[in-house]
Design a protein around this nucleic acid. Structure first.
Lengths: 224, 224
DNA sequence: CATTACAGTGAACATATGTGCACTAACAAG
DNA sequence: CTTGTTAGTGCACATATGTTCACTGTAATG
């Protein structure tokens, strides 16, 4: 097997072998293949228990080729974080377009959450798993991104009636609670088992109730 | 070095070598040494990235001796879950002794939470890390135990004023929310960095506020 | 005291891993 | 057309890992 096998990955991926592709286009594609391979393996393993060779084998390339794209496994990890966070941000952007009233916001937010999670299970699974489980650069990267995300949510919350006069600290507290609760919901959704559509409805209902419970607390709030 | 080194672990552990110890007592001790070694390593690694040889080296025994206590690493994992859950249950038992009013319950519960977590950081770190991060038997064991724990909490909640007439499902929903939120708090506490006592106070304050926000929601609740 | 059970050792092996190196075919640039 | 870049290959090697096996000293048993 000679270097013609260079095309092995990309062709397997695109399905058609001979459309002309630029050089960096090709590089991008195998890079993507590595990411996808990793995500595929991460469905039942944790990132820490993932070897370079495994990933490259799954991606259809030779181990040493890995270094053309990443310095080490940790680099792959943070690349995955970026990619997964892009999915998260896309979801948020859509959820943010929804309007004023609490009840509508909850309903539609949970709906878009459910939709996006199901559409990008691998990304969300990676995020929720490695948020706590991961160590080193990966967890750090996720923690940073989620902190940033919670800050934005806190600002969003401040625009709602009844939250306008809350302190930044209290808003942040509430945002953190929401983020943690919803990530718990995400974890239940992407848990490997039960592709049961009935269970999905129950989980979504639970998510709505939890959000509603939190929001109801706002009415009685006075910062201690 | 011959088999007299059999005493290496136990002596290093107890500090005094020649108090008479029964045979199974000795076995129990090295088993404990293995658990402790694992927990020590798990401070900065995830369980998945932990090798049998590493653990035994840290424990001060030879790799093959591991099999006298566990069939495989997974067994070690579930043993760790059991041990960690014992710490959790001990904490709960203490928290449960506290009385009626919401406000007092929150205050004292967060206090005992903080105390116990600081006293058994390794256990709680392991639980929160591997709850999501872990895969296979370990995560399954934690999930089962936490489900059970949430059920008990739901029952406890039902005894409070204003919650007496809630459906079992709603109580469970609220219990899950509390468990998830508090495990998030625990994670912040055992996060490896900042042994800052000032940060501890802020985290505790945040925990109280989150619980208060949830509890306040009860007043306005009507099951959808 | 004689015998058995067994928690621990140490050597050995097959396998998996990360990484360095020389090489090559194809694209890019002149 | 020639020349240089480079994403990929294939080989090689040192190291780490899980697990087997025969063993040994000591506590437990009779």
């Amino acid at each position: 097997m000679d270097a013609r096998t260079l095309t092995a990955v990309t062709t397997r991926q695109t399905g058609q072998s001979d459309e002309p592709v630029s050089r960096q286009e090709r590089k991008q594609r195998t890079r993507q293949a590595i990411l996808d391979a990793a995500l595929r393996l991460l469905r039942d393993r944790a990132f820490a228990g993932l070897s370079l060779r495994e990933v490259t084998k799954e991606a259809g390339i030779v181990p040493t080729a890995f270094y053309r794209h990443f310095d080490a496994m940790d680099d792959l990890g943070i690349a995955l974080v970026e990619r997964a966070m892009r999915s998260l941000r896309t979801m948020i952007r859509e959820a943010r377009q929804n309007p004023a009233t609490y009840d509508d916001a909850i309903r539609s937010s949970v709906h878009t959450l459910h939709t996006h999670v199901r559409a990008n299970e691998a990304h969300f699974r990676f995020l929720t798993r490695e948020r706590y489980g991961g160590t080193g650069p990966v967890q750090a990267a996720i923690a940073t991104e989620l902190r940033l995300f919670a800050s934005e949510l806190a600002i969003d919350l401040g625009r709602f009636d009844g939250l306008a006069k809350w302190s930044a600290e209290d808003l942040r507290m509430m945002a953190d609670l929401i983020v943690t609760a919803m990530l718990g919901i995400v974890m239940e959704l992407v848990d490997v088992r039960s592709p049961d559509p009935e269970a999905d409805k129950e989980i979504a209902a639970k998510a709505r109730k939890q959000l509603r419970l939190i929001v109801l607390g706002v009415a009685g709030w006075r910062s201690a």
